[in-house]
Amino acid sequence: MKLVSIVAKKYGIVIGIAVVFVALSFAHPTFLTVRNLRNIVLQTSIQGVMAVGMTFVIVARGIDLSVGSGLALAGVMAAGFEHLGLSVPLIIIATLGVGAGVGLVNGLIITIGKVTPFVVTLGMMSVARGAALLRTGGHPISGFERSFRYMGAGSILNVPVPIWIFIGTVVAATLVLSQTRFGRYLYAIGGNEEATKLSGINVDFYKVLTYMISGGAAALGALILTARLNAGEPIAGRAYELDVIAAVVIGGTSLMGGRGTVIGSALGALLVGMIANGLNLMGVSAYFQLVIQGSIIVGAVLLDRLREQD
């Protein structure tokens, strides 16, 4: 029993993916096809990138509920930049800047204003959504040039570009979180903010950075999405924050801070995407899918609790 619990704790997410994978392979013939599997990863790449960003926030014991709306705002802004006639690299930089800017505002209010992250980012969720709708009058802005659309629709070595972006983000973020001073500080802040502050570390600065990373990751998701849809969509990314937080928690990052890995969150996003894909294939109604999605989130947090107990 003990061995089982240790294995489950350490490789829980891998086992979870394996179980769901095998089950769905038997449940539906189309599941286990190259085309479908590629689709799953492709569809996961947006939430996956966002989950990677969210990992930084949650490891430092924060939470960012504004990522879904942040994605929508960054998306319509990207479309706006396109219409201004900016070059593609500039559009990318400016869009990432919008996301990071949303995070900067979140972070400053949280640290300087000493308001809990939950409240600040809940408010920002509404503000950013409203801003996106205002910007476009509620309608999508469409029409990107070809080279921009490449980010969503192109492929390299027969692998879609969004998947490459996802992989690149995971690799870079893993290095940052596990091999840099910044990463080490985040674990310390998440584990005990006061003790970290008293060790002479500028805790507030690093906390603000985590929200900027999370916001930036949402903007990266926005770039992929707008490029794929060929439109900036102000109602995009609704309830993404739930998928993203679920992915992070399923992936073994503690909501209590101080623990977690980037690769875990990426795998968590894959698991969430795989389940959604399976439910679609089996023709489960969209309403019922909502019920399942919610249950997965609560289940993941429950799992997190059990993990904390020992």
Partner: peptide
């Protein structure tokens, strides 16, 4: 409360002020 990050390792705690 103020001295140590209890869930991190001895090494992580020791090096916290000297990482920079």
């Amino acid at each position: 409360r103020h001295g140590l990050v209890q869930i991190l390792t001895v090494a992580d705690n020791l090096t916290l002020p000297v990482l920079d």
